[in-house]
Amino acid sequence: MKEVFFSIVIPAHNEELYIDKTINSLREMEYLKDRLEVIIVENGSTDNTLEVIKKLAPPWFKIISIKEAGVSKAKNTGIENLSSESEWVIFLDADTYLGQSFLKDLSEFLRKNEDKNLGCGMVSLLPYPDYKLARCWYHFYNFANRVTKTTRSIQIIRRDLLKDLRFDENLTFDEDTMMIRACRKRAKYFFFKTKKVFSSTRRFEKNGWVKQLLQWIYYASLPYEKKKKIKYKVLR
């Protein structure tokens, strides 16, 4: 079967210390380059993020720089610049990286399930750095994402659903949940088990594992109008 054409969109705001690992993992990806595009949207950074991206990104990456900060704005900019060949879009946090054969595995899974109207999904994550406490917490979060049909660090969305759907630019938190919820009204959610996607533990290490969980639960419980007032802290 012909491999899926993936578009990977990476929002990057003040990510000079983390995005190198993400870029390098995509450079080394074992996947046909004519079936893959990478769009990095640097948005409103005040550090050397753009310079790091330009230094590390190969010529076939698409680099876009905008003045406005905000993860939703960056993701929507990526959507507006997708290739016409794109079949599935992966929105990837700048501190999350992929194993070399991950896209091959995901492509095979999506092709085998084309008749099931899959439209959006999430994968199991492993922590980096990797240590026992982090693995325990990530096991919990993977279970929670699967049960609640939500995402974290990565969202995978079928391209045709993005013809008229966009991330809510009024939100700095839960924009991914709102998007997945909109997609689920049109297609099915999937959870793909893998050991080839790694997400930074930096937010948990900075805030504390329990404190971070409680903060997310509280924010998620707020009505939309109050969510719009949240200024989700950027950790660097």
Rank of each mutant, 00 (worst) to 15 (best):
residue 231 K to A: 10
residue 203 R to S: 11
residue 220 A to F: 12
residue 171 L to D: 01
residue 236 R to M: 14
residue 46 T to F: 08
residue 137 W to A: 05
residue 148 T to K: 14
residue 207 N to M: 11
residue 9 V to K: 11
residue 140 F to V: 14
residue 124 S to T: 15
residue 200 S to Y: 00
residue 189 Y to D: 04
residue 15 E to D: 10
residue 154 I to G: 03
residue 214 L to V: 10
residue 105 D to V: 00
residue 131 Y to C: 00
residue 220 A to W: 14
residue 217 I to K: 15
residue 59 P to H: 09
residue 123 V to Q: 00
residue 15 E to M: 05
residue 79 I to N: 07
residue 181 R to M: 11
residue 119 G to N: 00
residue 154 I to F: 00
residue 202 R to V: 11
residue 6 F to W: 14
residue 159 R to P: 05
residue 148 T to C: 08
residue 150 T to N: 03
residue 134 A to G: 03
residue 211 K to D: 07
residue 5 F to S: 05
residue 125 L to F: 10
residue 88 W to K: 02
residue 158 R to A: 06
residue 4 V to K: 12
residue 89 V to T: 01
residue 126 L to S: 06
residue 110 L to Y: 00
residue 89 V to W: 04
residue 144 A to F: 12
residue 8 I to G: 10
residue 73 K to D: 13
residue 149 K to Q: 15
residue 173 F to D: 09
residue 75 K to R: 15
residue 140 F to S: 03
residue 7 S to G: 11
residue 202 R to G: 03
residue 128 Y to H: 07
residue 123 V to H: 00
residue 177 T to G: 15
residue 38 V to F: 05
residue 23 I to C: 10
residue 146 R to H: 09
residue 64 I to E: 02
residue 233 K to N: 15
residue 176 D to M: 08
residue 134 A to M: 02
residue 230 I to Y: 03
residue 129 P to N: 00
residue 88 W to Y: 14
residue 59 P to L: 12
residue 227 K to W: 04
residue 231 K to N: 15
residue 137 W to K: 06
residue 132 K to V: 06
residue 217 I to T: 13
residue 98 L to G: 03
residue 195 K to S: 07
residue 34 D to Y: 02
residue 3 E to Y: 05
residue 45 S to E: 07
residue 87 E to H: 06
residue 106 L to T: 03
residue 148 T to S: 14
residue 143 F to Y: 12
residue 179 M to C: 06
residue 161 L to T: 05
residue 156 I to R: 04
residue 118 L to G: 00
residue 19 I to Q: 11
residue 227 K to L: 07
residue 39 I to Y: 02
residue 45 S to M: 01
residue 72 S to N: 11
residue 36 L to A: 08
residue 74 A to K: 06
residue 24 N to A: 12
residue 120 C to Y: 07
residue 98 L to V: 11
residue 150 T to S: 14
residue 59 P to M: 10
residue 65 S to Y: 04
residue 14 N to Y: 08
residue 216 W to E: 13
residue 86 S to D: 02
residue 69 A to Q: 15
residue 11 P to Y: 09
residue 37 E to H: 04
residue 2 K to W: 06
residue 118 L to Y: 09
residue 95 D to A: 05
residue 193 K to T: 14
residue 8 I to E: 06
residue 60 W to F: 11
residue 109 F to D: 10
residue 94 A to I: 01
residue 103 L to W: 04
residue 67 K to W: 02
residue 22 T to L: 15
residue 147 V to N: 10
residue 185 K to M: 12
residue 169 E to D: 13
residue 133 L to K: 02
residue 13 H to A: 15
residue 106 L to Q: 00
residue 205 E to A: 02
residue 53 I to T: 04
residue 150 T to M: 08
residue 190 F to W: 13
residue 172 T to W: 03
residue 31 Y to R: 06
residue 35 R to W: 02
residue 171 L to F: 04
residue 191 F to C: 09
residue 235 L to F: 15
residue 168 D to F: 09
residue 149 K to W: 10
residue 219 Y to K: 14
residue 171 L to S: 06
residue 30 E to H: 11
residue 162 L to Y: 01
residue 61 F to C: 02
residue 200 S to L: 02
residue 44 G to D: 05
residue 234 V to I: 15
residue 227 K to M: 14
residue 33 K to W: 01
residue 230 I to A: 12
residue 1 M to G: 14
residue 198 F to R: 01
residue 66 I to V: 10
residue 216 W to I: 13
residue 224 Y to K: 13
residue 171 L to N: 07
residue 84 S to T: 12
residue 60 W to C: 05
residue 89 V to S: 01
residue 172 T to P: 01
residue 95 D to E: 11
residue 38 V to W: 01
